[in-house]
Design a protein around this nucleic acid. Structure first.
Lengths: 341, 341
DNA sequence: TTGTAAGCGTTATCAA
DNA sequence: TTGATAACGCTTACAA
């Protein structure tokens, strides 16, 4: 691998001049620049990230810390990750995915070894020990998701509240008056204080009440088989519901197939909205589901921008923002039957 | 952040001695060592990875290159990744997940910037341009999966062949004589020459023939709805099959529920084996499926070991290995009905 | 507009 | 058993 010194020698300039050309950090005459660029091309020179980092005290690497306890990464997570990586690249940084357990020292270790300029923390929970660690450190960070009290923290998050209000509005507009929210109520998530779940529940209840609509609430585990059970539970306990908002990816297919097994047609007998999910899940059933899609791409970009803004020291010291889910119409929603509701 | 110089000053030794203590690279008297260690503790010293990398010409970072085109990461991939990260850590390295598109220059870029000591390439395809790039470079690498001609390449892979033979043997042992392989035959994968698919098909056909059993072959897209269709296709075209080996994660639930819709009971009327998948998928149906489980953990560990062996220059210059799937019995397999077959 | 030279925080070679 | 000191590849005052 050729070094800057090699380039300088070949172009017959000083090593500093080469640096000026590469980084456009000082004016260089056209002729000199040409010689340097020719030399670089001839040698196939690429600047060494290590030397640069050591000298400039910035590695330009940011890490996306992801909890290793996670069992799978869904389409939106992958989408998020890919988008974040692209945004980082566009802003002159590299983004790496760094798996961490929830043990306290893991974050410390990454911070101390000096390889990382800043971190993005995903899957943030309402009470998140990792956030406290970051807060207590000098490491710049941004959160994807929110803690219980995010007032002083930089974050971007899904706007579950307004997205859900939109969904309710959409269904009420179609004429539905009794609507069920089916979410993922596993004990694990509830105990962990999983923000999206908690906030969706509260918003749904409040918004339905505000509109004078009847809210039904159901939970099931995140598996198809649980979804089947939820379908039966719905038919047994809330037969007058004409629409369901489902916020449980893994249960979707079982739920829909459970309904179908009991002769319930979608959307003729029941409208189904898939909430905070992804197109591949929406397309996994017949008919395809009307979807409020997680804004993975937008979230990834915004998160990276927020972090790099901090690193470059430009803009506000701290940015917060939420992004709504996007509406993608499917064939699973319609006006309720005349006799229903 | 304290530096080695700070530690040296406090312990009243030279900076070199501190290095000797940390790296155990030269003998140091007990007393001196104690002073150094005390100083490190007192200052909360952590060695800076950047300086170390620059001086030693090794970053001790390895990258798991993962194709950004991938839409989701399944349990086995996450398991694999986590296990690889742990193994790397145990061997004194950091592992980061680096998303790359399939564009040719991406790999080059990572190589040239000097941050990475070696790479692990996952989701290797039979004809993989990324492998050619790596082969043509000086970057140490190991493959997870195999190309069409892997003779000269370091890799670890799933032993689909022997695992599938085991599955066939298991079903034959139960008394089944007409067995169906249901795989993921999307045009995309077939065109890309996806190794696991190709090798499983060939092995299944050959092994069934060798045993004088009747092989049925079905393919469907990777979605639940396609799985339902496959169930109907099976009943229509091969009603005498008494067992199915399914190698298509996403279609599993639809397939099983499609069977159930047609009154086919598992395992009484049909035995179902889930092949090359994960426990969460096996547990997503009723009854839980008998599973040949992808050896994600083992694969991750072996892959990292293979790579780091190269980096340390110990062991053979190149290691190759395959790992069988592990058997996890479920409730979806039994002897065929007396009148069946 | 260009060059000189002092770092950045380690490792590693030689001496002592 | 320890200590000086020259790298490692680059950035960045400061000079010229």
């Amino acid at each position: 691998m050729p070094t800057m010194r090699d380039v300088a020698r070949l172009a017959d300039v000083s090593i500093a001049t080469v640096s000026f050309v590469i980084n456009e950090t000082k004016p260089v005459s056209a002729a000199t620049r040409q010689r340097v660029e020719d030399a670089m091309r001839e040698l196939g020179y690429r600047r060494n990230a290590l030397g640069r980092a050591l000298a400039s005290k910035r590695t330009r690497i940011i890490a996306l810390l992801y909890p290793a306890l996670q069992r799978r990464l869904h389409e939106s997570a992958v989408e998020f990750f890919t988008s974040a990586a692209q945004a980082a690249k566009d802003l002159g940084h590299s983004l790496v995915l760094w798996p961490i357990s929830n043990e306290a020292d893991q974050v410390q270790e990454i911070i101390a070894n000096g390889l990382i300029d800043g971190v993005l923390l995903m899957e943030v929970q309402l009470d998140d020990p990792r956030v406290e660690q970051l807060t207590g450190s000098t490491m710049p960070f941004s959160l994807i998701g929110r803690t219980r009290h995010p007032e002083q923290l930089p974050y971007v998050d899904v706007d579950f509240e307004n997205s859900l209000v939109d969904a309710v509005d959409y269904l009420e507009g179609l004429g539905h008056r009794t609507i069920c929210l089916l979410d993922n109520g596993s004990a694990e998530l509830a105990l962990a204080g999983y923000g999206p779940l908690v906030r969706a529940r509260e918003t749904f209840a409040a918004e339905m009440a505000r509109r004078g609509l009847e809210a039904v609430h159901l939970s099931c585990q995140d598996s198809p088989i649980s979804g089947e059970g939820a379908a039966e539970e719905l038919l047994a306990t809330a037969p007058d519901a004409t629409a369901v908002v489902i916020m449980n990816d893994s249960a979707v297919f079982g739920f829909v197939s459970g309904l179908s097994r009991h002769g319930v047609r979608i959307p003729e007998d029941l409208s189904v909205v898939l909430f905070a999910s992804t197109p591949d899940v929406a397309a996994s059933t017949d008919p395809h589901l009307t979807l409020w899609r997680l804004p993975g791409v937008e979230l990834g970009r915004r998160g990276v921008e927020s972090l790099i803004d901090q690193l470059e020291g430009r803009g506000e010291p701290m940015t917060q923002g939420v992004v709504k889910c996007t509406f993608e119409e499917g064939a699973s929603t319609a006006a309720p039957r005349a006799g229903g509701g």
